[in-house]
Amino acid sequence: MSSAPASAPPASNPEAPAARPTRARARFSVPGNLGRAVLSNRKAMAGATLLAIFVVMALVPGLIAPGAPGAELYPPGQGASFAHPLGTTSYGQDIFTQFIWGARASLIIAVVAGLLSTLLSALIGVSAGYLPGATDGILSLITDVFLIIPAFPLVVVIAAYSKGGGNATIIAVLVVTGWAYGARQLRAQVLSLRNRDFLVAAKLRGERTLRIIVSEILPNMTSLLVANFLGASVYAILTAAGLQFVGLGNVNTDSWGTMLYWAQNNEALQAGLPLWAVAPGLGIALLGGAFALLNYAFDEISNPALRPVRGRGARSDS
């Protein structure tokens, strides 16, 4: 999940962080360039294709699997067959229908929680990096504290008290616990930008701080923001699934985590219905994997030093 800009040791190589943002800007300012970069990277292509499949599932589940996912219409506990490609649950629901309809909840949680966390990370990280002394000190302390407190136990504690909450509660909990990592990375990036000429010039022109942050700093961090969004989405997918799996979400929603909860409650594995637990888990894993692949590819796109080398001779002249 970590991307190279934050982990590159700035002390030993002062040139590298300064050079990166300009390159990133040239590459990402035009959407066409971004598209071409994704197309030419195999990992990005694999991730984008997977994601596209899930988006289709989330948009038109009724076209792929008509019928209500929760309806208990069929003989319970059946194995895979032509009528039920993944079999039926102990309650007589069609597992394939549940699987297709479950994509929507996971995708919504991933995208909304990912966006909101990135927004919060940007707000706090950029302010900490750009504003002077005391503000930075306080914001950084808060960031570090939230980074260190183990997120899942905290999520469990909050969810336990606000029990029965739907997706909105889960998203709020995920944002509260998931912003700190990104904020820290963004702060580091702002620190490396702070004394560059175009920012000094903007300050001398008398631009307001907010305007400098929004229209001068943020556009220069697009690649890091995208990486952050992808990382936060993976976190949201996995954590939400974990919460739903242990029954801390709303157990009556159609989602993969909830499917796993009912499968586990009915001992699906021991009862000879492994597909009931395998299918939703695979959905979560593949959706998380799609975001992770895109993130991994983004590291390579925004940091050319990490791109795969073709042929072994390339190493010696680096």
């Binding site: 993976v234 699934a241 796993l260 637990a277 395998v278 888990g281 894993a285 994997g289 992770a292 991994y296």
Partner: peptide, 18 residues
């Protein structure tokens, strides 16, 4: 392993039990 790290821990646990 990087793709595996995006998999839910508990699901890997379920599959390994299976």
């Amino acid at each position: 392993f990087i793709v595996l790290s995006a998999f839910p821990y508990f699901w890997i646990a379920l599959v390994s039990i299976l």
